[in-house]
Design a protein around this nucleic acid. Structure first.
Lengths: 340, 340
DNA sequence: ATATCTTGTGCAAACGATTACACAGATTTT
DNA sequence: AAAATCTGTGTAATCGTTTGCACAAGATAT
């Protein structure tokens, strides 16, 4: 067993077969110019020598790293990690790997992540924009380099790129309609920055559902925050202490509806009898609470898969024209205990 | 603005300064043989030309990719994503990037992930072993290649590598002692495969705490499963239907204690009055439930940081001797409503 | 004053794969 | 039967950095 210390390369294979490295390279890449017989031999010897292609060398020469950069606010949320899983499943079958980086919703981090990924020579980037991001020059830089970019969920319409989102408007509309059907009339809405597409759309859905049911929109009932659990608590406390009458809360985030529920319970409100609640996101914990929380499912796995598919369409699109494709998925209202 | 289509390379910098690429390369890498004056000039021109080093080329030549492969069962759990965050924070400051891959607790996936990461030429691997993994040859392969490997949380003592874990025994011991102090005597224990270090240690802690308090260990009270929420439900149903008397449950997982709590509530048990509960992991949802769940915090962020530090010690350890280091962190019992 | 270091830089060969171009022999077209 | 095309493979350059070796000039030691 002579086991040269280095890994086996195409040259080793070539040597064993008395052909050149180029032939081996072509054979391994299934180049049509190589005869079937040669291919078979090459493959056999490659297996025999336990040949592992050196992706780095290939990347350097060909300019393709087979790496996809994925930027998410945090991999820590069920929604994002599910999307990632969806992306990964598609990528793996196409022999691409994904590099995940988190922006933690910080603008600086996001910019730096883009920089790092570009430096790492990724073949393209898939991203969901961070909450605090207003300036989107770093994404424009990706586009200008001619590198495929696909956005999902948190997108920007200032950017002419392919994107995959759910119909946030519809999700909100259905959620609020459901509350109204169950008797709610004074529905508080938790929203966040209207610069962010998802919050803007959800609020629009909320308003239209009210309007279509002949309920006047009361600005007093709409509260803005960062949508974390603690924010939900604070907003609920505020509404209660200000003596505002309400019989339901529709939140654009499961986390803040959770905070609201805690506060409501502390104040002795009966849920759903006195106050009905609906969140957004279908985070797993919404089915662990008491009562369980009605919420809107965002179809995370399909979103991941479609995002990846859209991405690979771009990758395979030779004539690098800025073809953009927008996919809008249908959300699903998951009705649980907090609303009926 | 003549903007050659290609990116700027060290040759471009060299050209501008009438030196060679080697000098530029050395200057950029802060090689002591280069004069301070030259370094300054190089840095200046590099900035001026917006030079971005080509990591791929560097990786090919030097054999160092500055990539760390991280394998976790799922990035989707607070514990793992927090550890990842810890790792990332350290790695970023040292200009390393991390490639995350998930095993989904499937053996095949895990083996394939190792393969893929090695193929991607990562400089080292950080991993937490999947639940179904018994054969650990794929990890041995990493070691045999002389590539640094650090395990955290779910480790294997069949492997002579550096590892970072928490004191699972102590965590369990404290949890069970706490239950006993609060009056529990018949404590059910949810455990899982005893091949996995964490479950074995937690069970040992459970048993010793009972023993030290003069309570006999009743094998009937120890149940084994996969520790998901559904498993917790099933085990709790089984215990109840078999008429076994019990006044507390200590679970090695927050998910299965959640399932147990659901079932107990469905059966009308009062928590914590009739049955006290303690989980393990301090998943965020444990503070969302009603009552909130007492659990053991696993110090995920410090674990991530220490894991990364241990990793970099190995990376910087020239004389590749198989120096292994084992760090054991102290867990923390988080006392909440379900136990007192 | 000669021998020996030190300092700063250049030369050129890697690293391992890909690929434009060339070309010989076989096959088909005209 | 000459010309054109196809098939299968080889040659050699290339991707952008890194790095062992060489070497000139200045500094230090003997």
């Amino acid at each position: 067993m002579k086991m040269k210390k280095g890994k086996t390369t195409i040259h080793d294979i070539a040597g064993k077969l008395n052909v050149t490295a180029s032939t081996v390279s072509r054979a391994l890449n299934d180049n049509p110019r190589i005869s079937a017989a040669t291919k078979k031999k090459v493959l056999k010897v490659a297996k025999q020598l336990n040949y592992q292609p050196n992706h780095i060398a290939s990347a350097l020469r060909s300019g393709k790293s087979r790496l996809i950069g994925v930027i998410v606010p945090t991999a820590n949320r069920n929604f994002f990690s599910s999307v990632i899983r969806g992306i990964e499943e598609i990528a793996t079958t196409l022999n691409y790997r994904i590099v995940i980086s988190q922006s933690y919703d910080e603008f600086e981090k996001e910019v730096q992540n883009v920089e790092t990924l570009l430096n790492a020579q990724v073949d393209g980037i898939i991203a969901s924009i961070g909450k605090s991001t207003e300036n989107i020059e770093h994404f424009r830089k990706i586009i200008n380099k001619g590198i495929p970019l696909v956005l999902f969920d948190r997108v920007s319409n200032k950017l002419e790129v392919s994107q995959v989102i759910i119909d946030d408007y519809l999700g909100a509309y259905q959620a609020v309609s459901h509350l109204i059907e169950n008797g709610a009339r004074r529905i508080v809405h938790f929203s966040s920055s209207q610069r962010i597409n998802i919050y803007k759309e959800r609020k629009r859905g909320y308003e239209d559902a009210l309007r279509d049911n002949g309920i006047k929109i009361d600005p007093e009932l709409i509260l803005y925050s960062n949508m974390q659990l603690e924010d939900g608590r604070e907003m609920m406390e505020r509404v209660i202490s200000e003596g505002i009458t309400f019989d339901a809360v529709f939140s654009s985030s499961d986390y803040s509806i959770m905070g609201a529920m805690q506060v409501l319970k502390e104040h002795g409100f009966k849920i759903p009898q006195q106050v009905k609640l609906v969140g957004f996101g279908n985070e797993p914990f919404t089915s662990f609470t008491d009562p369980t929380i009605t919420t809107v499912d965002q179809k995370s796995i399909p979103m991941g898969k479609i995002t990846a598919e859209t991405f690979f369409e771009l990758i395979n699109d030779e004539n690098s024209n800025p073809m953009t494709k927008k996919t809008i998925l249908k959300p699903e209202l998951i009705i649980r205990g907090s609303s009926q």
